[in-house]
Amino acid sequence: MGSYDPSFAKEVFENVDFGDEIKMCMQCGVCAASCPLSLQMDHSPRQIFTLIRAGKREEVLGSQAIMLCTSCYTCEVRCPRKIPVIDVMHGLANYALKHDFVPRKDTANFGGKFWDQIYRIGRIDEKDLSRRYFFAEGIIEGIKGLLGFSDIGLRLFLHKRIKPLPERKIKGIISLRKMLDKAEKMRGRGGASV
């Protein structure tokens, strides 16, 4: 791991949102020690940053860890170098998915449907989101998924915690989409345009 191969690091610094922030990492391990999911991750955030420097492209972009960050901000408030670890993890995940890596299949599916819904109607409608999430793999898988979740769905429904109305678009949906399209085309923070 100790070897240094600058080509992948360069790719990350230039193309991943907030990728350049890891230049400041001093490998102290505070983030790894603070992370609630570090035991479930194949590599801790600190290790991910080492692997980037060592040029391990497949290992980093295929790592489950980059999609297991809950955005809890524990690492971020404790990092002595003030590195926005979450933004880097999310940036890496977004970049990995665009380059045909799928670090966590279910979260990629759920998160993808989540953003689709925002783009489509401007808001999140939880019942519709779960339906689309479960049925992403087809009818049979969808029914199995829904049944597996029916104990929870039914209870939420009985306790008035599922919005009864059908999903509705915000009034400014067209202008919102134009704004988002423009943003996706622009050169963002630490990243090149896609």
Binding site: G91, G111, I118, I170
Partner: peptide
């Protein structure tokens, strides 16, 4: 006419900006 904040999973489909 507010919209969703994007919460913590939007990064799957969208970039930071």
């Amino acid at each position: 006419d507010w919209n969703c904040c994007g919460a913590s999973l939007s990064y799957v489909g969208a970039r930071d900006l």
